[in-house]
Computed example of a mutant assay.
Amino acid sequence: MKLYFNLEDVSQVFVGSFVLAVPISFSEEAWSLSKTLPMANIALLFILSIVFLAFFAYEGVFQSDVQYRMPVYIARIVIAYLISMLVVALVLLALDKLPVLSDPVIAFKRLIIIAMPASMGAIVVDGFDKE
């Protein structure tokens, strides 16, 4: 039973998040949603992302065995989400659609909106290599 997050895991999370971040980052609908969606909905998307990551990691990655590995379980969820956000930020930056300096609120909303599916892709690919 492995109790760590290695380079292979990191690469799986990067690839998984990239697979879903790229097509959605090119979507004008995602850009428009970041301008119109209220912050309460953005918060709900963030919460849903974390909840679904937790469910999938619990069943798919840890096979319901987290009793003695809770710190690793939580770390895996946090790391998967943070890496997903990094991938989304890089893709949006490459597309010149991450207005961090000119409109940080829109930039933040875009990150959360696109990180939701990207993080699910990340954890699913990470789950291919079960604990």
Rank of each mutant, 00 (worst) to 15 (best):
A43V: 15
K35Q: 13
L98H: 07
S84F: 00
S11G: 02
I24A: 04
I114S: 09
V124M: 14
N41F: 13
I123K: 01
I24M: 09
P23G: 05
E131K: 15
V78T: 11
F55S: 13
A94Q: 07
P99F: 06
P99W: 08
I47Q: 05
V66G: 03
A107R: 07
T36Y: 08
F52C: 12
P117T: 14
V72I: 06
S17D: 11
I24T: 13
V61E: 09
V22E: 07
V19L: 15
L111K: 10
P38A: 11
V13N: 05
P117N: 11
V19T: 04
L86N: 05
L3T: 04
V124E: 10
P38T: 14
D96V: 00
V15H: 04
A107F: 05
K35G: 04
D9N: 01
M120N: 05
F5W: 00
K35N: 10
S34L: 01
V87S: 04
Y4R: 00
I79S: 07
V13Q: 10
L37E: 12
F5D: 06
Q63D: 13
G16E: 10
V125I: 15
D129H: 13
A75V: 02
P99C: 00
A21V: 12
L44C: 08
P99G: 03
V87M: 06
F46P: 09
D103W: 05
L33I: 01
V15R: 00
D129N: 15
A115S: 15
V87A: 00
L93Q: 03
V10P: 03
D96F: 05
A94W: 03
E131L: 15
G127Y: 00
L95M: 02
Q63F: 07
S32N: 14
F46G: 14
S102V: 12
G127E: 09
N41H: 13
I77E: 07
I123T: 09
V66C: 00
V22C: 11
L53E: 12
A115C: 12
E8N: 10
V105P: 00
I77H: 04
I79V: 14
L33D: 09
I77A: 02
I114T: 05
F62K: 10
M1R: 02
A118S: 15
I83M: 10
I106Q: 13
F128Y: 14
L53R: 06
W31S: 09
D65S: 11
M85Q: 06
V13G: 05
G60R: 09
S11K: 13
M120P: 01
M116T: 15
P104T: 11
Q12K: 11
I113E: 03
I113M: 04
A94H: 01
A107V: 10
S27C: 06
E59Y: 12
A80T: 15
Y4E: 08
V61M: 07
Q63T: 06
Q67E: 15
G16K: 06
L93Y: 02
V61P: 00
